[in-house]
Amino acid sequence: MAAGGDHGSPDSYRSPLASRYASPEMCFVFSDRYKFRTWRQLWLWLAEAEQTLGLPITDEQIQEMKSNLENIDFKMAAEEEKRLRHDVMAHVHTFGHCCPKAAGIIHLGATSCYVGDNTDLIILRNALDLLLPKLARVISRLADFAKERASLPTLGFTHFQPAQLTTVGKRCCLWIQDLCMDLQNLKRVRDDLRFRGVKGTTGTQASFLQLFEGDDHKVEQLDKMVTEKAGFKRAFIITGQTYTRKVDIEVLSVLASLGASVHKICTDIRLLANLKEMEEPFEKQQIGSSAMPYKRNPMRSERCCSLARHLMTLVMDPLQTASVQWFERTLDDSANRRICLAEAFLTADTILNTLQNISEGLVVYPKVIERRIRQELPFMATENIIMAMVKAGGSRQDCHEKIRVLSQQAASVVKQEGGDNDLIERIQVDAYFSPIHSQLDHLLDPSSFTGRASQQVQRFLEEEVYPLLKPYESVMKVKAELCL
């Protein structure tokens, strides 16, 4: 049975990233139509530049190519590739079939990587351009969430054990800070992308030097003109047959890092959902379990974690691919890159769409948070109580021993009897502590235990987050809708 299948058929496997999760716009960027249309555009740009620099290419040939950029006979191309065992030459023939007058000058002087690699770089750039505003929107939604809850005390956790208090907004800023680093890295790697350009079979530009009869300047002009037509500021000066596969490492490393950030955020949300302090959106008709109707599973956060793990592992592909590119190139890269580049971007696209949807509907339960604080705060307040007693004339050592005994009794009630923490009640009825009984409410005010959390939130948002989001103001209103 021949390899390949009808990918629109229910009898043929289709990647869930495309069929179930990723956005239509990201799927289109990695589609065959987008790819092969870009090949034709690159052939047109090459012909236009070659004509401008004096090669015998007519206006009629150029116009014929322009008129057929979208006229792609995919069936013919597939048949040609089956016959020739070469995808680029299959599309040269297919393009030439609908451009008979231009057929002889299509791909003039070029090698397969002229269309293959340059198209990949265009796709990487455009895919990054799709991700950047999506990530900015996630940051914006979380920034709104953090600002609104900047002063809401909550129990902090280290080692997932109760620690000092923080605020809900401050905790959210930990998430935002990681995503801001990801946004900066995505922008950097996007701006650092260079075009492969017009380089020939081993990167020496020998074929173009021959076409222009040894004119170095025209060869350099050709490279520059096509690079500018493709919208790049610069091209690699040095290439082998391909652009260095280190570029793929750079791009997928940034995406993998984004995956790590999203995994951490969504894990926190899942843990908070278990504590009943916070939940992701839950639709009115949504079913959490087929057997347990009360369940409210954090399905979206779980999906993000599941896909983020996949995204983090994909960076190993370009690392290994770059390491086995012998001399000017081997074909070890080809099949692998067809999979890992598309999957990385479709996965990143999915987790950003999902995280935006989550961040637009996060639900906080202040009463649950308050109750958990009441359970733990008495123990945390013991040092403040000791200091207040010393100020009232008591002995630190005597007070410490009193607190120690009462704390152990209260802990026994919590752990052995399943009761509430009654340390404060014990202190309130103990005559030894009568000098500070009137101060206990103040000493137990949760806001006095959150330090500068709310001020940190305000400063972080104003100095770091809002300036970073400013270039994306025009796209901030787009909502994230999930079908599944």
Rank of each mutant, 00 (worst) to 15 (best):
F28N: 07
Q416T: 08
L469F: 09
T202M: 06
F28E: 07
G394R: 11
A348W: 02
V414Y: 04
A136E: 09
I237E: 08
T330P: 01
E60S: 11
G169Q: 03
T204L: 04
A102E: 05
E464Q: 08
S334V: 01
C483I: 13
K187N: 09
L209I: 14
K75S: 15
T201P: 07
G259N: 00
A230Y: 03
P100K: 12
E481N: 15
E383Q: 00
M278C: 11
S395K: 09
V429N: 13
A410D: 04
M225H: 11
S412G: 11
S67W: 10
Q241W: 02
K367E: 07
N353W: 06
L152F: 07
I62M: 09
K479W: 15
K276M: 06
S140E: 14
Q285L: 12
V92L: 07
E481P: 15
Y21M: 03
S395A: 09
H217G: 10
F433M: 08
C27A: 13
R426E: 06
N353F: 05
P56H: 15
M181S: 12
M389L: 09
I139Q: 05
I373Y: 04
Y34A: 11
R194N: 06
D333T: 04
P281Q: 14
L406N: 06
I106C: 07
G451V: 04
A102I: 08
W43D: 01
L69S: 08
R137Q: 14
D73N: 10
G393F: 06
R338D: 00
L444S: 05
K35C: 10
T154W: 10
R141H: 14
K479T: 14
T450R: 05
L179C: 07
K35V: 13
H159D: 00
R137P: 14
R171L: 02
P10T: 15
C399F: 04
Q51W: 03
A410P: 01
C99Q: 03
L341N: 12
L362M: 14
K134H: 12
G169A: 03
N185P: 06
R85S: 01
W45V: 07
T154E: 06
R374S: 09
E250L: 11
R452I: 10
E80C: 13
S9Q: 13
G156C: 06
S257H: 06
V478R: 15
G418T: 02
M26T: 06
A77I: 15
G169E: 02
G156S: 13
T382A: 08
P100I: 09
I424C: 14
L307P: 01
A344H: 05
Y365C: 12
I369V: 12
K199S: 11
L440A: 09
A273R: 01
K402W: 01
S454D: 13
L252I: 13
F212Q: 06
V88I: 15
A230C: 05
N71P: 11
G203E: 00
K187R: 14
A480T: 15
I123L: 13
L461S: 03
L484K: 15
P24G: 10
Q51T: 06
Q458S: 13
A230N: 04
A453G: 11
Q409D: 10
S474G: 14
M312G: 03
F28A: 08
F208M: 12
P318D: 02
M292V: 01
T244G: 11
E64F: 13
N71S: 09
G109A: 08
M380D: 00
S257L: 08
E425V: 07
A392K: 12
Q41C: 15
Y294F: 07
A163N: 02
K367I: 04
K477P: 15
R149P: 01
L255V: 10
K415E: 06
A411I: 07
W43E: 07
I369K: 04
V262S: 15
M299I: 12
V465Y: 03
I287W: 02
E376R: 03
F460A: 03
R196F: 07
I436M: 06
S12G: 15
L352D: 03
L186V: 11
T382E: 03
A291G: 02
K187C: 09
R20G: 00
A344I: 04
G214P: 09
F36S: 13
D11S: 06
P100G: 08
T52D: 11
T167N: 03
L307Y: 00
V363G: 05
H310L: 09
L42R: 02
D182V: 02
E360I: 06
D441R: 09
V368L: 03
G240P: 06
L183Y: 08
C304E: 05
L84G: 07
Y13S: 08
Q416L: 13
V247R: 05
F95C: 05
Q409A: 12
L46G: 02
K147M: 11
F433V: 04
S474C: 15
D248C: 03
A230R: 01
K134E: 10
L53F: 07
L132Q: 14
P281R: 11
K229H: 07
E383V: 03
C27D: 15
I373G: 04
A3F: 09
M1I: 02
P56C: 09
P471H: 15
P446K: 04
E417W: 10
D32F: 11
N353E: 14
Q205K: 02
L132S: 14
S301Y: 03
I265T: 11
K477F: 14
Q409Y: 08
I369F: 02
T242I: 08
V390W: 04
S306Y: 03
A206S: 06
R149Q: 11
F449N: 04
R83M: 10
I123R: 06
C98I: 12
Q63P: 05
P471F: 15
L275N: 08
M278P: 01
Y34N: 06
